[in-house]
Design a protein around this nucleic acid. Structure first.
Length: 323
DNA sequence: AACTCGACCAACCGCGGGCCG
DNA sequence: GCGGCCCGCGGTTGGTCGAGT
């Protein structure tokens, strides 16, 4: 049995709200409150369904809403809470006065996810991508290991490019040690003609790293999963000096957090938001899950990651209690 | 100048839970 | 206990704008 529609679709206007409609709704709510959304459009002479009125009010017209840019503090709060709560946007928004769940969700999907990816952090688990690779690698059968490099290239391209360009970025970032954000992104430092070479280096380095790791005794294959937020993947990832890059210690000790720094890489910036999501889904489904055993690895990884978050969350920091 | 493409965000959709008769 | 209604939530879509070509 289908759900009963919230209103008759025929006589209901949809799409963008006009200033007149906004005014009608605001005036009505100012006088009568928001007791029954189904009746509000009728009483306010609006050809909208109650649901649309409720959304318009809660997401846009409410007088206590903030409409400007998210501050760095707000962004950090979102990321911190998301690492604990996941996509519970309403709970996260409750900690940010003047922000709606829709605001938070949109900001996350359009900005913060890419920001984290550009910093080499998986926005789902809030762990460095390299952590995930290392965990997957430790669970693979030797015959499966050769496929990891290719799969990882698809899934963690941003991370790899970030690692490979970090030296140059580091030089540039030092110029902004006063806390201001650098304008240029990592990609700025990669000339187009260098990219092919870079990818070849990634392939080579990753393959060698995996190969060497596979030859290690089992007890040495765990590349630090002790809960630190910096990754020791670089420890295994050093087939030669040129490939010895460490991840920054992102926010775990309260400093050196490159939060205000736009570290998105090319692939994160030039791809449309919806396409990013679809690409990620595709690569997850086709590259990782196609390889049996990798799925188990991912599940194990999720269990592991559930216990670790990037930023410690103190309950006294919260505005509203989280249930 | 025209076109394309990505970023952004408002709005929609459908589901689930709570309340009430 | 059941069904209908309302509301809140999270995922998704579509329109608009601006930058790049």
């Amino acid at each position: 049995m289908g759900r009963v529609p919230c209103c008759e679709k025929e006589n209901v206007k949809r799409g963008q709200w006009t200033p007149e409609e906004d005014h009608k709704l605001s005036s009505y709510i100012a006088q009568h409150g928001t007791r029954n959304w189904r009746l509000i459009p009728k009483h306010a002479s609006l050809q909208r369904c109650g649901k649309s009125c409720r959304l318009r009010w809660t997401n846009y017209l409410r007088p206590d809403l903030k409409h400007g840019q998210f501050s760095e503090a707000e962004e950090q709060t979102i990321v911190t809470l998301h690492s604990v709560l996941g996509n519970r946007w309403s709970v996260i928004a409750a900690q940010l006065p003047g922000r709606t769940d829709n605001d938070v969700k949109n900001h996350w999907n359009t900005k913060l996810k890419k920001k984290l990816s550009g910093m080499g952090i998986d926005p789902v688990t809030h762990k460095p991508f390299s952590h995930l690779i290392s965990e997957i690698a430790t669970t693979l059968a030797p015959s499966q290991v050769p496929h990891l490099a290719e799969a990882a290239l698809g899934c963690f391209k941003d991370e790899m490019l970030h690692l490979l360009t970090r030296k140059r970025m580091g030089l540039e970032l030092h110029q902004f040690s006063d806390g201001t954000s650098p304008v240029n992104t990592a990609s700025t430092f990669i000339k187009n003609e260098e990219k092919d070479e870079t990818i070849q280096k990634i392939k080579y380095g990753l393959s060698r790293a995996i190969k060497e790791t596979d030859e290690l005794p089992l007890t040495n294959k765990n590349w630090d999963t002790t809960g630190g937020t910096s990754s020791n993947f670089s420890g295994a990832f050093q087939p030669d000096a040129e490939f010895h890059y460490g991840l920054p210690s992102l926010g775990d000790d309260g400093d050196a957090t490159p939060w205000g720094q736009n570290m998105c890489t090319d692939s994160a910036r030039i791809t449309g938001d919806r396409q990013v999501i679809r690409m990620n889904k595709k690569s997850n489904n086709e590259s990782i899950e196609d390889s049996e055993g990798l799925r188990e690895a991912r599940e194990a990884s999720e269990i592991f990651n559930a216990e670790c978050v990037l930023w410690d969350l103190q309950s006294e920091d919260l505005i509203n209690p989280i249930v």
